[in-house]
Design a protein around this nucleic acid. Structure first.
Length: 231
DNA sequence: ACCCAGGGTCATA
DNA sequence: TATGACCATGGG
């Protein structure tokens, strides 16, 4: 294993300084409870949060936002409720699978209290739950110390110039977790949230480096912000 | 009329 | 292990 990369901690400091006043989707103040996070993590797959949230709202209004109801609800009805978030048949099936996993664990409270390894194993064994979705649930619903690696994370750190030896989920996660040895779950919640906010507004496919708080430490920004080079 | 969005599964080689 | 089709809606 390699030594912690000091750039990662610096990026966190800079993002936190820029965004610490913001609220984020899945912050304890924003969500109604863990089921918002769990269902939201599935609904947001390959979609914008805006549309995922609309589906979440429909589920809530239908009284379906709890594992028992989700596991029992008619699949066609569920498809209609989540249609606005795209791939409705896919997401209806996945939501029911997640709900079943929770019920099987003895209910939401028991599920969220599972030991780290058990929680992870049961999530990953659930249809429709891959590593990112499992980690988002572990971090934001069960408050476990895991770094959620998503497309935003890879884009941001790739541009900064921080990359793991292999472009795999595990390698990215290991690099980022080991770079912040003293970080707890709350810090990782904020870190991921700031990355999302930052990538939505600044670090986009067509980036706005001129207004980026990270530009001083970002190789990509130096090449793309129009800043005069040293020659 | 494009292209993309906070993924994951499945088939194929 | 690695790559690509597929899912399907909303917004730029």
């Amino acid at each position: 294993m390699s030594r912690p990369d000091p750039l990662v901690a610096r990026v966190y400091e800079q993002l936190d300084a820029a965004y610490h006043g913001e609220t984020w989707h899945w912050s304890p103040h924003y969500v109604r409870g863990p089921m918002d996070v769990i269902a939201g993590a599935v609904l947001v797959q390959h979609t914008t949060w805006r549309n995922a949230e609309r589906a979440l709202e429909r589920l809530h209004e239908a009284g379906a936002l709890n594992p028992e109801r989700l596991a029992a609800i008619d699949e066609e009805r569920l498809r209609d409720l989540v249609r606005v978030s795209g791939t409705p048949s896919v997401k209806a099936r996945r939501l029911r699978a997640v709900a079943h996993t929770i019920v099987e664990a003895g209910g939401l409270a028991a599920f969220l209290a599972l030991p780290d390894a058990e929680l992870r194993a049961r999530l990953l064994a659930t249809h429709g739950v891959g590593r990112e979705t499992a980690d988002a649930i572990a971090l934001y619903a069960a408050e476990r110390r895991v770094f959620v690696v998503d497309a935003y994370t890879k884009r941001l750190f790739s541009r900064i110039g921080v990359r793991p030896p292999a472009d795999s989920y595990d390698a990215w996660q290991r690099l980022l977790e080991e770079a912040m040895p003293a970080a707890d779950a709350t810090l990782f919640q904020r870190f991921h949230a700031w990355i999302v906010l930052h990538c939505k507004s600044i670090c986009r496919p067509a980036p706005r480096c001129e207004s980026c708080v990270l530009r001083a430490s970002c190789a990509f920004a130096r090449d793309h912000s129009g800043a005069p080079s040293s020659r």
